[in-house]
Nucleic acid binder design. Structure first.
Ligand code: SF4
Ligand code: SF4
Lengths: 152, 152
DNA sequence: CTGAACGCGGACCGAAGAAGTCGGATATTG
DNA sequence: CAATATCCGACTTCTTCGGTCCGCGTTCAG
């Protein structure tokens, strides 16, 4: 529960990899799949999804592949997850298909919706660039966490 | 993906219901299940889990049932989720059983771990009491979200 | 012009997890 | 004792996730 899918995980890895190689015109799905150990065909489909969502530019044919459509700073983790796994919500009373039938009687729906928005905000504030910078920032996450705890 | 299980959902609803009835010595699983529409047997198991984790006090026999072990303010949503669904992490490289085998080569593990901590912090800052107060707070969640966006 | 390398798209399958059910044991009260 | 609870594990069913396969369209080097 409350777990990222592996596809989104792979997608983030691939985006980060592309961000680290800005000079190459295009990298094929196989290139990225080989860099890590993830299955090539699956990674290909993920990159196709990202392309369809406008996060990547693709180029078919020989020496083809993918490249970032925008600067790494302009791509948020939220967009990646949304592109791969669709609109996300932490409760079941969404997702259009098969929503929870006790939505009217439910009393915790609105508070959880607010939690959902907070989490979405966190994800939107993370860019691919942030992932690529591997320098361990001393305590920025801890500060953010403290702020959340104080203000909510 | 990134979705709360319905069990955790039910658990939060039950806790909130108990918090709203502080004067009753004990409420049976069936009482709570009837108040909402959730299946009684399933709710019973969830309450048992919460009892085992020390969030509830149980009393068997006639007129038995469950009651909050602590004040509603002292119980966080994080504890509830943790008690019901076990230790949670947004990535797959945890859960002890069947961790992702490319953990060493993965480069986005640490950044995601920080995101995970932030989300955990948000959940820890939500108490059952917060859920029970149904008054729609104008914009506290929005403020928190803005702060996160600024600091991360 | 031809074929290799690559992106696209759908169908498909096995494994895992979630939601819910059942049955029985035990404890408490009246 | 009988009724009402909690307790606990096994089980079935359903959905989703992870992954594979195959056929097609596109590009470009030789
Ligand atoms: S309506 Fe309430 S119980 Fe149903 S999924 Fe939404 S939050 Fe959970
Ligand atoms: S190791 Fe990396 S790829 Fe594997 S689950 Fe953790 S974050 Fe995802």
């Amino acid at each position: 529960m409350l777990k990222l899918t592996k596809k989104a995980d792979y997608g983030l890895m691939a985006l980060k990899y592309l961000a680290e190689h800005p000079e190459t015109p295009a990298l094929s799905a196989k290139d990225v799949a080989d860099a890590y150990v993830i299955p090539a065909q699956l990674l290909a489909k993920i990159l196709q999804l990202l392309t369809k969502s406008g996060l990547l530019r693709s180029h078919a044919g020989m020496n083809g592949g993918y490249a970032l459509a925008r600067d790494a700073r302009q791509i948020s983790a939220y967009e990646v997850i949304h592109a791969i796994d669709g609109p996300f919500f932490i409760t079941s009373c969404t997702k259009g298909t098969k929503s929870c039938e006790l939505t009217p009687s439910c009393t915790i729906k609105e508070p959880l919706a607010r939690v959902n928005e907070t989490i979405a905000g966190v994800l939107k504030s993370i860019s691919i660039q942030d992932l690529a910078e591997s320098e361990p920032p001393p305590g920025r996450a801890r500060e953010a966490q403290a702020l959340v705890a104080l203000t909510l």
